[in-house]
Amino acid sequence: MAAEAQNALTDYKVVDDAIPAPLTDRKGDPEAGRAIVANRQVGLCLLCHTGPFPEERFQGDLAPDLRGAGGRWNEGQLRLRIVDSSRIVKDTIMPSFYRIDGFHRVAPAFRGKPILSAQQIEDVVAFLQTLKDQP
């Protein structure tokens, strides 16, 4: 039971297409967020997305360019899009980064865990807000 409690996710409230309130008390750190986005084992973002990462040679194009994301969406909209994009586009291929239920055959090492922690989500949101320039 204790282990389950540790895995429980922070509650959040969806308002329209956004989660207006941060998931944590600590303000997101855009630099930490950038590192998460660029890391293909942590954020996984660049597998599908391209972004302003001149040092990263291999980026994906299955999904929109991240540049300009901070102009297209406000903080709360970005948060929901990372937490659970499927609440906006039901059959999106974008993973739900802060969800642990409704999945099929999750590998034991990842079972009951979200892809990113609440604090990591806040960091990524803070970073994406800085991406105002369009591609």
């Binding site: 194009d61 299955l62 291929i93 993973p95 739900s96 999945f103 099929h104 999750v106 590998a107 865990k113």
Partner: peptide, 19 residues
């Protein structure tokens, strides 16, 4: 399936040729 919640078809039917 999996934590990333993808099917084979998501990539190999719907997104082949992409990077």
């Amino acid at each position: 399936q999996g934590q990333l919640n993808l099917s084979c078809a998501n990539c190999h039917d719907d997104n082949w040729g992409r990077s």
